[in-house]
Write a protein that binds this DNA or RNA. Structure first.
Lengths: 349, 349
DNA sequence: GTGAAAGCGCTAACAC
DNA sequence: GTGTTAGCGCTTTCAC
């Protein structure tokens, strides 16, 4: 963008001093005389001088920008993560560039390359549903770009990561259903590539085992997309069984919503006939009918923690190129929000 | 970001040729011999050379980046706008930087300055709820930065804008309620600074007038935030009136959802006692109970159109600094999605 | 067909 | 206390 930008040179020329003096005056360098500083700052204000970040970035080989790759912006969860990232990044003097992979591996590859080309100082990544090969990430990692993964992490990298305790969350949700007297609890399973899917399944299984409830594979239905439509279809399959489930623990809220639709259309009641629990991506679950019990994930906090870790890494590395920070794993707790969709005996929370 | 980036110089040194030749070879300049081109491209591939966009931006005084300022990412409407913007921007070779004002004027000022400092080639802006003074925008506009406003526009600028036909949408919604037999239709009004608020009120009034229904100021309740809580409070006020309304046209979906809560808590039925229509910000209105009739806004299309207009403006201006493109106003149609919350006579769509 | 040199805006040695 | 110079990575005249 050229247009009418004021540069340090303009100020220098007008004041009859050198650009370096202007530069120093603007950053309050101790060498510069108070008078010069005053004159420079006043003129800068008057001309509404704004430093050119592009030049600065080139000069310092540092853009003060962090790149973020998320699967999709429309999820409430990810948009809260973004806010958490911005919160920390802005106060540390970093800009944020957000890209969406749209759950496509191809797009994720393009995004990561684009962020690298923009010379971001580091990246925060939550991988797409399709990502099972990580060459594109290793590639950039090999160039020494600091990376922190969040929620959907790259398991085998030795990068830092922020995750949610999916196993405990899923277990808690399942235990809650068991406490409500449910015996045949179905699980709508998420995208197979994602670690979180495995963890949620494992939490579900552990809860059943602790109560000596046999694990029935026919009650575990794949929902690789985790969408409303898919949750609906999966539930229709479950409802067609001879022995219907009396509860469903869904991979996420959209799937749970699909379940609710299917159950209502079948003329059944929630939670009397079938109780429902979702894993939270959105926040309006309180407004559904009946209000949905959900395993809530702390998105804002996750964004904050991820950004903190990344920035620390960037700053250590920029001071000393050879020091590698030990990778850290931070596990955040989920919170089960109990609502009517899972309260079998009609007891309110 | 320094790290291990390969530069044109590296390639030149390795091949024993000059950086300028490498540069030309990489962009397939006709002067360069096929052999040189081949050698350069092969080495570039081998070293995984990625051009440094920061250097390029500085050199060309063009960042190929457009900045976006939106009130809040968490709204479904705005996240679809973003996708529309990215759709057009990426295929035209532009990057996108998104900032959120969080509905704060202060933050909007910081954002716009940050985007200017980053030397974005142009900006797409939807102003915050608080924005009634536009000096910060005029300031940047005066520097010649191309800007296009969308949805919540800066009325008095002569910039291009993409808006939704709020007046017709609101009128259509109100007429729909009238057709359902409603006589006392309340309106939950939006943030007073925004033009869209005025348009929606005007559409509401026009519909009533066309049917000779008197406009009762006590049925128009302010909802400056447009949140669920506010919609609920506003509705409680309406329900406390001697002559209750028999329908509510809300400034947006959250307000409509608040209304629904208040009505249910008062033991009344939707739509039998009171019918509801919202103005759409989110997409899950179909899943509410009862499913909410909404004036749907075309977010993706709005993003596309805004980006198209801005990029055209950027490219004309970069070719010829003095030519100013005539500002355009593009009005997109809303779509009334009729659902149970407004179907008074129980007739299904 | 290729190279040398200048410059985008800024800062940081190194002068003096 | 201030100026001069060089250089971040790249492109683009202008030479030859």
């Amino acid at each position: 963008m050229k247009y009418n930008q004021v540069t340090i040179k303009d100020i220098a020329r007008e004041l009859g001093i050198s650009p370096s003096t202007v530069s120093r005056a603007l950053k309050d360098h101790p060498d510069i005389s108070p008078e010069t500083k005053k004159a420079v700052n006043e003129l800068a204000d008057k001309l509404n001088y704004q430093p050119n970040i592009v030049a600065l970035s080139l000069r310092q080989s540092k853009t003060n920008t962090i790149g973020v790759i998320i699967p999709e912006l429309v999820h409430f969860f990810f948009s809260t993560v973004i806010s958490g990232i911005e919160d920390v990044a802005y106060s540390a003097g970093y800009n944020v560039i957000i890209t969406q992979s749209n759950e496509s591996l191809q797009r994720e590859k393009t995004d990561i390359k684009a962020l690298f080309n923009s010379r971001v100082d580091g990246m925060l990544i939550s991988v797409s549903r399709e990502t099972s090969n990580f060459d594109h990430i290793d590639n950039i990692l090999a160039k020494g770009v600091p990376m922190v993964f969040f929620d959907r992490v790259y398991e085998n990298s030795n990068s830092s990561r922020i995750i949610v305790d999916d196993l405990s969350g899923a277990k808690e949700a399942t235990l809650h259903l068991i406490e409500q007297g449910c015996k045949r609890i179905a699980h709508l399973e998420g995208p197979p590539n994602l670690e979180i899917t495995k963890q949620r399944l494992e939490g579900y299984k552990q809860a059943l085992q602790e109560h000596n409830i046999p694990i029935d594979p026919s009650l575990i239905v794949a929902c690789p997309l985790g969408t409303i439509e898919e949750g609906k279809k999966a539930t229709e399959i479950l409802l067609a069984m001879d022995e219907k489930p009396d509860a469903i623990f869904a991979t996420n809220d959209p799937a749970a919503m699909g379940s609710m639709q299917a159950i209502k259309e079948a003329g059944l009641k929630i939670p009397q006939d079938i109780a429902i629990v979702g894993f939270s991506n959105w926040f309006f679950t309180a407004l559904l009918d009946p209000p949905l019990t959900s395993v809530d994930q702390p998105g804002f906090e996750m964004g904050q923690e991820a950004a903190k870790l990344l920035i620390r890494q960037i700053e250590v590395k920029s001071k000393n190129h050879d020091v590698e920070l030990q990778p850290e794993t931070k596990v955040l707790k989920t919170r089960l929000i109990v609502r009517d969709s899972s309260l079998k005996k009609g007891k309110k929370k």
